[in-house]
Simulated assay, not measured.
Amino acid sequence: MIKLFRYIRQRLLLENKFGKYLTYAIGEIILVVIGILIALSINNYNDNRQQRKIEQAYLLSLQSEFKTNLEKINNCLTENHNQVKAVENMLALFDDNLRDTTSEKETSDIIYSVFKGVVTYIPSKGVVTDIISSGNLNLIQNEKLRQKIASFESSLDFLKIQEVSTHEMKKELQKQLNENGSVRKVLINKGFNFEHQSISDTASNKKVFGLIKFENTLLDYYLTINATNGSRFFGGIKEQIEQILVELDSEIIK
């Protein structure tokens, strides 16, 4: 093809047809430019198609990750709700009339239900971290989805502050119980067996419910965990995850 163009140019020059030569040369330049533009267009198309493939792979991975996170946050909401109920049962023991009619076994059950564990949300973040740290977040075309993914981690940081505060309050409660009650008595009433006897075997944990300091700390703890299920913490994380899943579903090619 190049040899043909060269032959035509040389022939026009030999025949002194400069005007036609100039016109032909311009036409040849235009053809070359058009060829370059077509090549660039094809290259851009291939690049865009490859980026869309990567985007779809990320979207599917994100969908799986956030479905797992939704399940985890729902479990946290349920566990925290049960914790709120357990603390309400413990607060009721500050009523002298109710406490007098509650057995040591029932008292131990209530104490154990409050202290048996802590509610902590540990989300899966592998895909989100990879997308953000690799700079590939811009591959996701949906701007709203990009913003929600980018803000997810900051929401988790805010939640972590609340969780740390909650755990510190629970440690303080545990400390006061250790100072004024008997953990051994709770464990015995829950079925734990100890080889040797102890002075705690005849102790009663009901006396801790006559302490104003213990009640105040328990109330602080109650208000905190009650708020944790609200829109600023667990409830807000759940809503954010659900919104991300809606956006992901709209972007994934079926």
Rank of each mutant, 00 (worst) to 15 (best):
T101R: 06
K105H: 13
L59V: 00
A86L: 03
A92C: 04
E79P: 06
S124A: 14
I73R: 00
S133F: 05
L77A: 13
R52K: 10
T78Y: 15
E104D: 15
I54P: 13
N48G: 08
Y112T: 04
T68D: 12
V87S: 07
H81L: 15
V84Y: 14
E104K: 08
S124N: 12
F115M: 03
N82I: 12
N97F: 02
L62C: 06
V118S: 08
A92Q: 07
E71V: 09
Y58P: 02
N80L: 01
D109Y: 11
Q83S: 11
Q63E: 13
S103N: 05
I131F: 11
E106F: 05
T101E: 08
P123I: 02
T101Y: 06
T120A: 09
D47S: 12
K72M: 13
A92V: 05
N46P: 06
I132G: 10
V84F: 10
N69R: 00
E71R: 11
V118C: 03
L93E: 03
K53F: 04
T107W: 03
S133L: 01
L77G: 13
V119H: 00
F115C: 01
S124H: 10
N82H: 15
V84Q: 09
V114G: 07
L93P: 07
P123Y: 03
L59T: 09
L59R: 05
